[in-house]
């Protein structure tokens, strides 16, 4: 049994089936890339795993730590150790980054506003953030700004990875974290993710392009087309996509080739 198992997942959005029965095993210590063209269901997969209300699961399970993730509310999925870095992080006016991060850290520690001993101390909080922010080349002003307000595209993505770094998930889903990033930002983000790699973290990188995979080397690559995996294999699958794109699948009524690349 894998640490994180997606079994025959089918999902509809506004009555239309987007994910048509996909299965995937992710173990901690592994990095998986899910690649696919626009409209293939990549974002549906990431949002469904985190429990976004717009996505309706019609069948399937996601087993993590002996529980069916899909039966849990979003906050409990996060508490269990699942993290989603959003493709489009939302601006939340009126809530400062530091309040947001502190509340999230405290929630993970089980602090509910009563037992102060569970809350992170201001000193510890600052030390934790300073370290991770320097890796991501973020300056202190981030903390006093409202969540994502006025952030550039690159700053938003780095802020997502900062959240991942301080919340220390066991399964992290990075949804198009590379999109809209300049090469420097990709490097900072990749460095931060690579630092976190290890036996306690499984990563699912969802991406259209192969670029980020040059910096974060995947163990497995899966190609998602029209709501189904059409190809799974090692890093060489990314090379094949780099050379040929998605043309061998896109535009055909049925995915023609379903094979295990060797």
């Amino acid at each position: 049994m894998a640490d994180f198992e997606i079994r025959d997942l089918r999902v509809t959005v506004e009555g239309r089936e987007i994910l048509k029965g996909i299965s995937l095993d992710v173990n901690k210590g592994e990095v998986h890339a899910v690649m696919g063209p626009n409209g293939s269901g990549k974002s549906t997969l990431s949002h469904t795993l985190m429990g976004h209300p717009n996505y309706t699961v019609t069948s399937g399970e996601v087993i993590f730590k002996g529980k069916n993730l899909l039966a849990l509310p979003t906050e409990q999925r996060a508490k269990l150790g699942v993290f989603l870095a959003l493709q489009y992080p939302v601006v939340v006016p009126g809530i400062s980054m530091s309040n947001f991060l502190r509340t999230a850290i405290n929630a993970k520690r089980g602090y509910d506003g009563k037992d102060k001993s569970k809350a992170i101390s201001p000193k510890e909080f600052l030390a934790l953030l300073k370290n991770e922010m320097s890796v991501l080349r973020m300056d202190d002003s981030f903390l006093s700004r409202y969540v994502n307000e006025g952030f550039s595209g690159g700053e938003k993505k780095r802020a997502e990875i900062l959240q991942m770094a301080v919340l220390k998930p066991e399964i992290a889903i990075l949804d198009e974290t590379d999109s809209g990033l300049d090469i420097d930002s990709i490097k900072f983000v990749s460095n931060a993710v690579n630092r976190m790699r290890g036996p306690e973290l499984g990563v699912l990188i969802i991406t259209h392009y192969t670029r980020i995979l040059q910096f974060i080397k995947p163990d497995r690559v899966h190609v998602l087309v029209d709501g189904q995996f059409v190809l799974s294999g090692g890093p060489e699958v990314a090379d094949r996509l780099e050379a040929k794109g998605y043309s061998e699948w896109v535009g055909k009524k049925e995915p023609a080739v379903i094979q295990e690349a060797r």
Partner: peptide, 30 residues
């Protein structure tokens, strides 16, 4: 309350009731 805001906070493990309070306070903070 904007459901996207709520999802974002909950996806960080912040319980619904706490997220609700933060979002309302944030709305009025302006």
């Amino acid at each position: 309350v904007d459901p996207e805001h709520m999802f974002y906070l909950e996806s960080r493990g912040i319980p619904h009731s706490v997220a609700q309070r933060m979002l309302v306070e944030g709305f009025l903070a302006e």
